[in-house]
């Protein structure tokens, strides 16, 4: 796959490099020969029909899923089965889930300070200041003492983003962050993500929000049947898709 030279201008430094990666669920070949290089500061949107392996792909990057073949290197660290290695990568890579996965027994503030205190060994006071800083950034500092169950879905997802940011990650992974939200709340989450992108965060987003892809992505990747079928800059990708599978997909999601 030829790298588009324009994309490289983001930065020369590689954030994530995946080579010849294969993964099976039992005998089902879910990811096939994945090759992907993500440069620092790049915003990548991964699209594709359900079951195409896009979530699995980004979950392999922070080892929530184990890959059976190939090599994944995240921020200079090669992913191996060594637990210390995995924990190191996970503390550098933030992740937002479709169902937020906030910790319901902790307050919003505690959700945000937990990992800095226990993983980064940040003093509690400092961690709380950091958490309030990021809660302000996602525009919900006044909810800090509430519990996740008392917040709307959009607010919960923004807390989840703040919680990840408190670990000062170098890379953010988004696994369909708006799929479980009411239409009214999608925008507030997307706005937060756009803001994050404008600050130069390296982002990999699995999402069906094609407007978001057009606005902030510098590369769109289309996956089907566990393979990368097509990748391009958003304008080219949407206006001039090459593969028939991509054309079909785009006509189905943009057609209505």
């Amino acid at each position: 796959m030829a790298e588009n030279t324009k994309l490289k201008e983001v930065s020369d430094k590689v954030a994530v490099s995946i080579q010849n990666m294969n993964k099976w669920y039992g005998t089902f070949h879910v990811l096939r020969d994945i090759d992907l290089t993500v440069y620092q500061g790049e915003r990548i949107v991964i699209a594709g029909p359900s079951g195409s392996g896009k979530s699995t792909l980004i979950r392999c990057i922070n080892a929530l899923e184990e890959h059976q073949q190939g090599r994944i290197e995240v921020d200079g660290t090669v992913l191996s089965s060594d637990l210390k290695n995995i924990d190191k990568i996970r503390s550098e890579v933030g992740m937002c889930f479709q169902h937020f996965n906030l910790f319901p027994h902790l307050t919003i503030l505690e959700n945000c300070t937990l990992a800095p205190i226990w993983v980064r060994k940040t003093p509690k006071k400092e961690a709380e200041e950091l958490a309030m800083h990021f809660l302000k950034k996602v525009k919900i500092p006044d909810q800090a003492d509430k519990y996740p169950g008392q917040l709307s879905g959009g607010q919960q997802q923004r807390v989840a983003i703040a919680r990840s940011l408190c670990m000062r990650p170098r890379i953010m992974l988004f696994d369909e962050p708006t799929s479980a939200l009411d239409p009214e709340m999608i925008k507030e989450v997307l706005d937060t993500m756009v803001e994050l992108a404008e600050e130069g965060m390296t982002m990999l987003c699995v999402t069906h929000e094609m407007g978001f892809a057009r606005q902030v992505a510098n590369r769109v990747i289309f996956m089907d049947e566990g393979q990368i079928v097509e990748q391009n800059e958003p304008e080219e990708f949407f206006n001039n898709p090459q593969s028939p599978r991509t054309k079909l997909f785009l006509s189905q999601i943009l057609g209505h």
Binding site: N62, A63, L64, L83, D87, K88, R90, S91, V93, G94, M95, F97, H99, N101, L102, F103, L114, A115, W118, V119, R163, S164, M167
Partner: peptide, 21 residues
């Protein structure tokens, strides 16, 4: 939910921390 384990993992908590906290 499985997501609680995953969220704890994705934040870099080790096994003992994830279980206890």
């Amino acid at each position: 939910p499985r997501g609680q384990y995953e969220a704890a993992d994705s934040l870099g908590l080790d096994y003992a921390q994830a279980m206890r906290l």
